[in-house]
Design a binder for these strands. Structure first.
Lengths: 247, 247
DNA sequence: CGCGAGCTTGATGCCGATCAATGCATGTGG
DNA sequence: CCACATGCATTGATCGGCATCAAGCTCGCG
């Protein structure tokens, strides 16, 4: 696995960035752009920022100024209730956008926490708005990304509102493998970047239930689980589990 | 295929509409616009559509062409899993926007169903995009609305993932009364537009649990419930219930 | 080596689902 | 007007899935 556990000594605000040469350009904001548009985007996305494992990219209440595109690494976003329970609202990997929640009130409404040492591209929001008034394709792509997030959220609501523990876990794993596959990784083998507890906080389950789920899947020959190393042995059955299939 | 509301006797496609004279203008898309901008928006939002109670404004898979602003009436949006379980993803009232899910793939990803006879303003999406390239305020307001939807969804995830039945119900009721209050209605008295089953499908509960919740609140002197007519007797306690308060 | 964070596994209990019966309001046709 | 059907809501009894509580276990790391 390409675990870039490399220590990031510099705070890294001035690294040269170029969407046009980024290997995520077909997944990220510039999806399908012409060369000219890509150049303009390069001017917009001028800086990167490094975030160490365990640190937050932004907190609830922070002023919103920019969106962030994950370049390397892995994040979770989370919201909390008054009495301290948190809900993980998503896990973000390379090419995915963070910070859309902040547009609404100019303040972030969730925390974004790096689950491993990560780098993000900083997209100053005011400039994105200006540029998207000029470039239809950028405007369109940006709107699609926001809408996609809304559709994703609908899926999570369906999961949380109507699925049983094992169904949720199966859906979670399939979603991860599909996104990893889109990034050129195996769709049968993955390393979880988050703890059982974080998976539980995402799926509305306790960590013990998540753990039992993994064990059950292993017994049933659906997965091979070794700590955070997961091998999908029977993808079809995993898919059946997501729907209402009995065993 | 798009049966939708085509059965409506008065197709109501040619009614004259004007955001500038709409009493929802401070809640809806044109929030805070200048007179000039309002005129341009009037040109954009040229038609209305009527939807009868029980009919759908759009279905999963319908081509996305326009957003809809609720003018009168009440809607629910819902998504369904393979095996037929549905999740209600939201309830929309006057001044709220429907259809944002469709931008992502040009196809709607949920159903929007009228819970009572309703009217919506039709906002052709292509035109909205064009106009928002010209008017910064429209662009900004539109982005805020999408972002607000994402933030709302985070709140629903928190509810579904971490709250108990009565907390969910209390949160639901408070949310409704607040939105009604913003529209000039009483915040202590409301008529539910949806069945217990629909509330349950939104909150991830069965209708019996919702019913028991109402009864419990009534016993505790928090609510007075008579069918769908609700009176909030103790708003503070309802608020406590939303947080983790033992009672 | 020993510590601690994270994980697994078992025992028990509770919340909400399920099953079932009844109540209540509205509507419809005789 | 009544008889009856229908859709929605309430309430009770029971059941089951997941939370909770409680031990150990594993592995990475100082």
């Amino acid at each position: 696995m390409t675990v870039s556990a490399s220590v990031v000594p510099i705070k890294a605000a001035d690294l040269k960035v170029a969407c046009s040469s980024c290997n995520l350009r077909e997944l990220c904001l510039p999806m399908g752009f012409s060369e000219h548009e890509m150049d303009r985007l390069d001017a917009l996305v001028a800086t990167r920022r490094s975030v160490r494992r365990g640190e937050t990219l932004f907190h609830v209440g922070d002023k919103f100024e920019a969106l962030f595109a994950v370049r390397t690494g892995f994040f979770k976003t989370r919201v909390s209730s008054e009495d301290g329970r948190d809900q993980v609202t998503g896990f973000q990997m390379a090419g995915e956008l963070l910070g859309l929640d902040g547009i609404s009130t100019d303040l972030h409404s969730c925390d974004a926490v790096a689950l491993e040492d990560s780098q993000v591209c900083v997209i100053p929001y005011g400039q994105l708005e200006s540029l998207s008034r000029e470039f239809t394709d950028l405007q369109r792509q940006f709107h699609r990304i926001m809408s996609r997030e809304i559709v994703r959220d609908q899926g999570v609501m369906l999961l949380l509102g109507s699925m049983r523990a094992e169904e949720r876990l199966a859906a979670f794993l399939l979603n991860l493998t599909q996104r990893l596959q889109a990034r050129g990784f195996s769709h049968t083998s993955l390393v979880l970047r988050m703890t059982r507890e974080e998976i539980g906080a995402y799926l509305g389950l306790k960590l013990e239930t998540v753990s039992r789920g993994f064990s059950k899947f292993q017994e049933d020959g659906v997965l091979q689980v070794r700590q955070r190393q997961i091998h999908v042995l029977d993808e079809a059955k995993l898919q059946q589990l997501v729907n209402g299939a009995e065993c």
